[in-house]
Nucleic acid binder design. Structure first.
Lengths: 214, 214
DNA sequence: TATCTTGTTTATGTATACATGTCCCCACAA
DNA sequence: TTGTGGGGACATGTATACATAAACAAGATA
């Protein structure tokens, strides 16, 4: 990828952080990044500020930016927030999805069953399922909020990619249950199921992290 | 206020937009604002980008920034989002507030009853009540999300300040009901009551706006 | 008359130089 | 030994000049 604009620099940095190639605490110095990307400090500077607002970077020593460090409790709060917002979207989608959207949602899940144990491919299907709910909820403000929160969680999801893999069949079953509730237009059931779904994936992730720490 | 830094420029612009002194569609030109504030374009530029991220500004003609225009449907979505997030916070707070926090919350509401018809003073009490729930929910991620959403609604709240006034006694009763649910640790009741509470204030606001439009 | 081209205007985007601020470290004195 | 003050390094903050992109208008051409 050729880097020219501030936005592409932002995207590139997000990629590197989310993919775990830049680790928490690692310094993000304007001058160094500017030379690395072959541009001046100005666009790099803008990218770093956007990173800070996305909670992917924070101020470290000497006011310099560093890749954001997160405590375990921060991660727990973040996943709780994602779970709650996704739950709301699921509940709204239960009432608001059109017939076409419902069928589309079911088709996505069917496709997910053809993935077998291919975790990477299933991950894409998973994303499409959640995207379908986001659209079906008919609320751009909540959708943007969720995207912002997800940006933060992805740093962990990527670093601990095998969470999805270990939960693959469980996750499929949970998705089916959520879809069923939505088809029945049972908003409260959809909400509760989605909350459990997100919480379950968090628990696996937290377990992996704590084993590493131990 | 003396304007020197990018952050204070941002704050100043937020104030002017939120207070309705800058109206939707009004252009925000870097050069003009720089001269007005007595600084160079650089800090103004940074402030404008932050405004865009806060959804208070958007791109208009000639790629220039303008104060964000909102359609009625956007406003409805926004209030729905606020209502849902506040509901979640209320539900979490029902389980998590300490005894001290609960007493503090009740004290705030008692103080609200001494305001009489002083809408401005009651507005402050109102803010403190919602802030107490935000703290009591013990989730910084959700709290920051709510703050961001509220930043957007305030542009309307300020312009239509008398919404609070017209609903003063009703609002008090709703707050009492929410507090009661929280004291009883009834999360689902708190959630539902809070949702209605926000929806009710939106309905009044929308009514005022549609009368103006008519 | 319609449209395509091109110049001008107006705004943002980027590069570079300089200003400011913070933290570290070490000298030096109580 | 410890506390304190100043110099220097390093990183961000700001000012200014130049580059670029998009929209509008005027004029040439079919």
């Amino acid at each position: 990828m050729i880097i020219r604009t501030a936005e592409s620099i932002f995207d590139s940095l997000v990629d590197q952080i989310v993919a775990g190639r830049m680790k928490p605490g690692e310094p993000l110095v304007e001058q160094a990044l500017a030379e690395q990307f072959g541009v001046s400090r100005t666009p790099v500077r803008e990218a770093l500020h956007r990173l800070e607002q996305a909670s992917l970077a924070e101020r470290g020593a000497r006011r310099a930016f560093v890749v954001r460090r997160m405590k375990a409790s921060d991660l727990a709060e973040l996943f709780e927030a994602v779970g709650e917002v996704e739950s709301v979207l699921a509940a709204l989608a239960a009432h608001r999805m059109t017939e076409i959207e419902r069928r589309h949602m079911l088709a996505i899940l069917e496709e997910g069953k053809t993935c077998g144990e291919d975790a990477e491919r299933y991950g894409l299907i998973n994303a499409r399922f959640h995207a379908a709910l986001k659209t079906g909820a008919r609320n751009a403000a909540l959708a943007s909020v969720l995207e912002e929160l997800n940006l933060r969680t992805q740093a962990w999801r990527a670093a601990n990619f095998h969470v999805d893999a270990s939960r693959l069949s469980t996750s499929r079953a949970e998705h089916d249950a959520i879809a069923q509730a939505i088809m029945a237009q049972d908003a409260e059931a959809a909400r509760g199921l989605m909350r459990s779904h997100v919480a379950a994936s968090y628990i696996v992730l937290a377990d992996i992290l704590s084993r590493r720490g131990a």
